[in-house]
Design a protein around this nucleic acid. Structure first.
Lengths: 206, 206
DNA sequence: AAACTAATTGTACGATCGTTCGTACAACTT
DNA sequence: AAGTTGTACGAACGATCGTACAATTAGTTT
């Protein structure tokens, strides 16, 4: 598996790069992608500022790389665990549970990375905003497709909208108010939403 | 009406202060309260940087004053119009419609001011975060109380959670993806949520 | 008209921002 | 062994940040 590359220099470089991006995503989930500064990153990681800068060439590229790194973590933690199940209600439930766990266990210290950066960049212009919007659309598309794989659901678009709303609300309430009940309320809301979407769904589960 | 104050100097000062805070709230709804800078504010308003600074004494005070100013606009635009109706379903519906209109007509150019700054400060510490969290709690408390005034609703906390989730989701989707359908989806979700909360509610409206 | 007060301005400061540059050194190639 | 490549570093740059303070302007009071 992997490349045949054995060059110790680029190997070390990639490790440094991963180190930088992990910390960058952590910082950005709390302080935002603009709150992230190259100098601060260098200080915290005890490397030189120019060393950090050289890996990306510009702050915008650092932000883009940070978004991509966070997306990879999100996919590994939320999307992939649900793919082991066949399309249907069970996969959807695992997907939603996985999201709530990803937020609740603070994979990123500031809660959901994408909730933070979407709100930060939603009204701006540029490549970073476009990248964030692209991932956001991929996520909502995937939720919608997963919902649509359940034949009992009459309006997948509407249900997907409501389900994602519950997830993000739980994240927001939990982070802002340290409210541990937010996630249980979201789980109730999800259960009600699924049950209401199709009585047959509720029936098959009893 | 109001104060007996006739001093033209402080009158002019207060007008300048209002001018600053209006622009500050507009900027913050797009770029965040940290993206707001005293120098930029001064340039855009064509006043001196020290003039802007003198009104607040520190950046933190400027941010706090901006949050307070935005809260006043929010109350005038969303909360007060609903108060003309007696507690009950009609008041709740006007409150939710008012919120969606406030977001949709871009009272602030970046959509809901508090959605933006909550996500920006939710994981931080300090007086600005505390002020934002305080207003957020007041808002959710008020929605909950308004919901609780409808006797048919079994679980006001749960319903309030879900309703606010729909509002914020609509704002987020609309701003990030320029999606005009987001608000209509939220209105459908609100209607379903209210109808489901009590069949009696739905019955009384037909 | 003179004294006073409040809002506003101009100038300057230290710190930090993103960025550029030349250099040092370890690792790979020949 | 000599030459090349890639990562990391230290120093410096112009710009902008928040903040401080004295000078100025405009309006009020005596």
């Amino acid at each position: 598996m992997g490349g045949v590359k054995v060059d110790g220099r680029v190997e070390r470089g990639e490790q440094t790069r991963r180190l930088i991006l992990r910390r960058a995503a952590e910082i950005a989930s709390v302080e935002g992608l603009e709150g992230l500064s190259i100098g601060r990153l260098a200080t915290e990681l005890e490397v030189s500022k120019s060393g950090v800068f050289a890996h990306f060439g510009s702050k915008e590229e650092l932000q883009l790389a940070t978004v991509r790194a966070a997306a990879a973590i999100f996919v590994a933690q939320v999307v992939e665990p649900a793919l082991v199940l066949p399309p249907g209600l069970a996969r959807l439930e695992r997907l939603l549970d996985g999201w709530l766990a990803y937020s609740e266990n603070r994979t990123f210290p500031g809660g959901c990375f994408f909730y933070a950066v979407q709100a930060e960049f939603d009204a701006r212009h540029g490549r970073v905003r476009d990248a964030i919007a692209g991932y956001g659309r991929q996520w909502s598309d995937y939720v919608r497709e997963t919902v649509a794989a359940i034949p009992e659901v009459a309006d997948p678009d509407q249900l997907a909208f409501e389900l994602i709303a519950f997830l993000e609300m739980a994240n927001a309430q939990s982070v802002l108010h340290d409210d541990p009940h937010a996630y249980s309320r979201a789980r109730v809301a999800v259960r009600n939403g699924l049950a209401q979407a199709g009585a047959a769904v509720s029936a098959t589960r009893r």
